[in-house]
Amino acid sequence: MSITDSDTPYADSELVLDVLQVGPAVVVRIAGSAGMREAEQMRAALEKLADDKPPLIVLDLSSMEFICSMGLGAIIQSHLRSRHHNGQVRLVNPQPAVLDLLETTRLNKLFQIYPSVEQAVRT
């Protein structure tokens, strides 16, 4: 997995998290596969972002090809951590297979899903 905020590369390339500050919101573009091997690292990365207490974390899932239940758990952990400071986690534009997974697990009821980062940040 790698996490970049322009100059913070990690090793491996199964999963890439690009972090961007947009006003008060933190936008995380998640690309690749969030499988069992990457989920723990993703959880740690998202919780670390949440610990900075941004009012809004936007997870751009448009380039995420795969996610397993452990990856979903990482997103939920981020949501729980953000809620401690009344923050929110929003999801953006999941690919059809990932959207189906969110619907199957009913996590589309827990998270608001937006068609674009702009709308998620603006709303």
């Binding site: 239940s69 979903l72 990482a74 939920i76 949501h79 199957t104 697990t105």
Partner: peptide, 10 residues
């Protein structure tokens, strides 16, 4: 909101 427990259902 539970982070775990979805594997069997999936």
């Amino acid at each position: 909101e539970k982070p775990c427990g979805r594997g069997i259902m999936l």
